[in-house]
Design a protein around this nucleic acid. Structure first.
Lengths: 338, 338
DNA sequence: CTGTTAGCGCCTTCAA
DNA sequence: TTGAAGGCGCTAACAG
């Protein structure tokens, strides 16, 4: 690996000149001829500046962290993909961290957060204890932004959860359903509250009552969605339609419906949240509200970089473009007589 | 952020002493009293060594890269999760990169690979052009290991693809199927070749003929699995059972079966590859061969660190523990008369 | 127009 | 038992 000095020697100048030419220092005036020599020497030696040295000098890591619980969650992977491209456009790299590990292992935490290994942190909370602790510690040490939720005193970018949830429930209402249940998120998150509020607002606007028996936690996993519907069923007659505030949980709910001997959508309409890759491929294909997950990742990273750059940023922002969109497939149908 | 000098001043010693105490230099002898003063000063100031400075000094980044195509692919996310934990146990962090971006954007490539921002690279190939180019360039610059496949001249750790594929097909045979098709991977990968070989070996051992019409590319996505089965159907009568060499593609194939009006498993048995989270939740629940994906990620990272440490490592290794395991659910059934 | 110098924070001989 | 000094590779003042 050639260093800047090798290039300097090769071009017959000092390393300082090489640095200024390569970094296009505007205050520098050089003979085109010298510049040429330096450039070609750099190219010939395939010189690439050393990341660590730069980081040390600039007091900047050139990296942004991404703290997440469960990479295999498809919702997260879409956000991550957005973050990934955004980070690249800021000439940085993405470091992945597991929130639970950060919480469990102090050395992992310091390696990542407090050692200036990253310039900022994007945090995907799930509403756990670990979340709260890690987030508090991280945000006091670094520019931090919470994605897909809000947190007091921390910058965040989220989706219009209330509007999206309202859209889901209104779709069910428009199909004639009057008995509508909800499998909402669990965990202590704002998006849970907002989605539930959107659901209830839709009900209220339609003059429908929100039945306590039909409000249940569905979480964001297959199993939590499945057990959520089972719990609801165990409490009495099911509604004719259920809004599930997560697509993965919606698939779990579909499984539960099958286990209960209920035909979807004839006997039970199910609408999900997020247009994951599998939603169009299961049978019946899942009707969902599609949200701008990739954009969410992009925006979060943008905010982190604004913060790093010392800019003033609104503490909370919402991704409204692209807007939530109803994707009607097969899992919802007009209410039928029973 | 306190530096080592701040700690030294606070403890009334030189920064060299602090460094040696904190790093537990065995050649150092200090009065317990001094050590105590240094340790408590470090704790009081919450001193954390600067990552960049360490990296510069050690000529080590303290990070390992992970190059992947599609984070949202559940197969990958399980491997990534394994890699994540393994990296942490080596006191390092994980950097995420998109292969296609590395291929497209030279600056992204150099930022990651050639600037010593990472000490080694774990590469998850998908058999594309970009793969080949990126892998060649990376492996000449860094300790690199290919996961879930092999590549000439590069270290790799993979699964026992042939055995697993054989296991899948043998399950079908044991159910009495004699007309057995396969939806194998696409892309130019060794695992495709190995899985196909395992499939054909099972057929051969059972005295069954491998029918060209029943060998089709199913890829590793929902859509590729779906269109793969449709293509097979368009060429003539379908077999009574199909081994799909990827679980996601298997779900796509199930969708295609539904579109073709075929009941699974009564009219068509389907077995998938990899026990993804959704496999037990779709209806019918998918029978699969479970492979040690997490372990694969762990092992890959271990090999990278062996390489970084200058150890001699076998060029190719296979994860055989845990062994592939047949998980029988609902999508396969004994052949029925037609 | 280009070279010299200093220092980012850390670790590691070598001296004292 | 501890201090002093040098240098990892790079950038940014300041000289010349």
């Amino acid at each position: 690996m050639p260093t800047i000095k090798d290039v300097a020697r090769e071009a017959g100048v000092t390393h300082a000149v090489v640095s200024r030419i390569l970094n296009e220092d505007p205050t520098l005036t050089v003979r085109p001829e010298t510049r040429e020599r330096v450039l070609s020497a750099a190219a010939r030696l395939q010189y690439i500046p050393n990341h660590a040295a730069r980081a040390l000098r600039h007091a900047k890591a050139g990296a942004v962290g991404l703290a997440v619980h469960d990479i295999s969650n498809p919702v997260y992977s879409e956000i991550i993909a957005g973050a990934q491209t955004a980070v690249a456009s800021h000439e940085s790299v993405l470091m992945l961290a597991d929130v639970d590990e950060l919480h469990r292992d102090a050395s992992a935490f310091s390696r990542m957060i407090t050692s200036k290994a990253i310039d900022g942190l994007v945090f995907l909370p799930a509403g756990t204890r670990a979340d709260e602790a890690v987030l508090r510690a991280a945000s006091s040490a670094l520019p931090t932004v919470v994605v897909n939720d809000r947190a007091p005193g921390v910058h965040s970018v989220s989706l219009d959860d209330a509007a999206a949830a309202r859209m889901a429930t209104e779709h069910l209402i428009s199909l004639g359903h009057r008995d509508i249940g909800v499998l909402t998120l669990d965990g202590d998150t704002h998006r849970r509250i907002d989605r539930l509020a959107g659901h209830e607002a839709a009900l209220r606007d339609a003059g429908l009552r929100s039945e306590a028996n039909w409000i249940e936690n569905g979480g964001h996993t297959l199993e939590s969605g499945r057990s959520g519907l089972h719990r609801m069923a165990s409490r009495g007659p099911l509604p004719t339609a259920v809004a599930v505030h997560n697509a993965t949980a919606a698939l779990g709910a579909m499984r539960a419906a099958a286990e209960l001997g209920l035909a979807v959508p004839r006997e039970l309409s199910i609408i999900g949240f997020h247009d994951m890759s599998f939603t169009g491929f299961v049978t019946p294909a899942l009707t969902v509200v599609r949200l701008a997950l990739t954009e969410l990742g992009v925006r979060a990273v943008d905010v982190v970089f604004q913060l790093i750059g010392g800019e003033q940023v609104e503490e909370t922002s919402t991704v409204v473009d692209p807007a939530p969109e109803l994707v009607i497939r097969e899992s919802t149908a007009p209410v039928s007589e029973r």
